[in-house]
Design a protein around this nucleic acid. Structure first.
Lengths: 173, 173
DNA sequence: CTGACTGCAAACCCTTTGCAGACCG
DNA sequence: CGGTCTGCAAAGGGTTTGCAGTCAG
């Protein structure tokens, strides 16, 4: 949740249209999976999408969620943030925007800022390849993490007695 | 490779000093692991560091590489880019800098640009948490990927006959 | 109807952990 | 010497794939 109704409807309409043009079938599962990502501001990972969709379609399988999310990305309907392997997180916001990312728990939030949308590309960078887009990533510690002893999110190496034990990464709220 | 000698020496010296202050032992393995990351501009993932170190210490184990890299991060000697779970990639460049990232193969390159170092933090973002730093991420397709049929780097869903099959992510060159 | 799609189960990888022996300081 | 650190092996988790049955168009 978090995306207003009008925007969500626009995203759904775009999905239907794109799917039709691409000759991709509009199944119940796909619709619900897309709806979940498109209505969220959480940049959910696969697991979170799966649980949410499962609440509505109890028989949906995890691999369908994987396949569908990558298909949506192929169609250009969502983008990923973060890695290309490992835990990917999805973003249905196609407008130019930027991210706040918590370096402890991984929480991610969009924000828009016109001034950041038009940063030039330094000449030295052009040699690396063809630029697709530019995003500003503001890294910090989110409120929940700075408040709580919410624990760490990555392995503590050579953990000493007093240290907090690793807990399964809470569901990116 | 890629970091000039003077800078590498400075990084190694800093490592020794920080380790001593923290009461962490300076083992052969740790030195070589740090040297590998500190001398590279590749933002290597664990696997790449492991292979490089293994060439010099044939008995080194993969888990030691994992433990050491996270320890180095705990000490503030390197940072990670990308995810907090999954495939992390490491960065021994502690100066303010920004990244060019290939959206196809994941290649990452640093670049410096003073104008990007001092972007303000929009008021709306401050509510999300305490900002640690800000980086500009320029996303694009690197030369190797735009040149070659270097294949895709993530699963192709509903792959059609003609499509390229997924290949193991080549070693970030 | 028919090919695209789904669910299942197994395979794959990458990462982490427990433990006994090795080694730094 | 003692506690830290390493290597080994196994466990743990997330992701991907092959296949047979199902369903959208």
């Amino acid at each position: 949740m978090g995306v207003d109704r009008g925007e969500l409807d626009r995203r759904l309409e775009r999905f239907r249209e794109t799917a039709r043009k691409a000759g991709v079938r509009l199944t119940h599962q796909r619709l619900e999976i897309f709806r979940e990502v498109a209505s969220s501001i959480e940049h959910p990972a696969v697991e979170a999408v799966f649980r949410a969709v499962q609440a509505r379609i109890s028989t949906v399988s995890l691999d369908t969620v994987y396949r569908t999310l990558w298909m949506l990305e192929d169609l250009g309907l969502i983008t990923t943030l973060g890695p290309r392997r490992g835990v990917a997180r999805f973003d249905a916001n196609l407008r130019p925007h930027h991210h706040f990312v918590c370096i402890r728990c991984g929480l991610a939030r969009d924000f828009e800022n016109p001034a950041f949308d038009s940063l030039g590309v330094p000449g030295a960078v052009k040699q690396y390849g063809d630029v697709v887009n530019t995003r500003v990533e503001i890294r910090g510690v989110c409120r929940a993490c700075s408040r709580g002893a919410t624990g760490r999110t990555r392995p503590s190496v050579n953990r000493k007695p007093g240290q907090v034990r690793r807990t399964k990464l809470a569901d990116q709220k």
